[in-house]
Amino acid sequence: MSVLPLLDVGLALLVVAVATWTMAARDLFASVLGYVAYGLLLALVWVRLHAPDIGLTEAAVGGGVTGVLLVTAGKRLDALKAATSGAAPRLRVKILAGALSALVAGALAFVVASLPTPAPSLAPQAAAAAAGPGAGLGNPITAVLISYRAFDTMLEKIVLALAVLGIWSVGADAAWGGAPAPLRKARPDGAMVLLAQILAPIGALIGVHIFWVGADAPGGAFQGGALLAAMWMVAMMARLVEAPRIGSRALRLALISGPAVFLAVGLAGIAMAGSFFAFPPAFAKALILFIETFMVLSVAVALPMMVAGPPEGGQEP
């Protein structure tokens, strides 16, 4: 008997157990840490599903950046002693919620178990198109993201910009235009500074590497950008760099450069290749890398800005 299925079952049980703990924990911060552990485990599950691209995304975003976001939020809520969270629902509601959840989970399990075999797949079409619109990309996921479903990817980057603006807009009027605070609250500590000084440049290199290989191997603009984002956050936490002011033109340009360049190239597609968001096969790879470079920049700037939160410094109303 092979060991692999045992490993899979063990991992599956562990994921569900940690998820259950995250939901059941009494203590808010314990629950947050449970979620961070859960994010790490999910990266392993993704690798087992032959999805290293997603594993990398989950490791960088689900475990890493989300972890910092939630840990920061949990600690700040503790510090604010903002305990009033509304009454717990009555038992009747809980039973109903449990029944509904069990029903949904059961139906879903049933559907997943009875998915058709052979499974329908667009992999053959993607392989065929790899010679044309996604020319020169060895990583089919990158081809899907930047070429076949370019429209989704461009709009999703606009969603990121909107989220940043939405987060800024929650701040106080008096602070508008200033810099966000939470990442630079620490007193610079020798060990932290040293760690950041070594980690950030190495991490930045790895981020660029992962973006660069993403055309042909697992990785890509989002994963590379997310790692760069994490390294910028590390540098901010150690106060090697300060958070930028949200009024800064350069910051805003960087935030929208990804979708803006994507949109511009997409519009130009009608002149170059006869259709919006089409790339002439001769330059497809060069154009795609060009767009991706700006997407990396946008992601690397947007994620830290989202974690850093609204600008602070003005008076609370």
Binding site: D189, A191, L194, L195, I198, I206
Partner: peptide, 20 residues
């Protein structure tokens, strides 16, 4: 080796910080 070096670096630094 890089993976190990990174974990070593992070682990050592945070251990020191947590200890302090």
């Amino acid at each position: 080796v890089v993976v190990w070096a990174l974990v070593l670096l992070s682990g050592a630094s945070t251990a020191q910080l947590i200890g302090r």
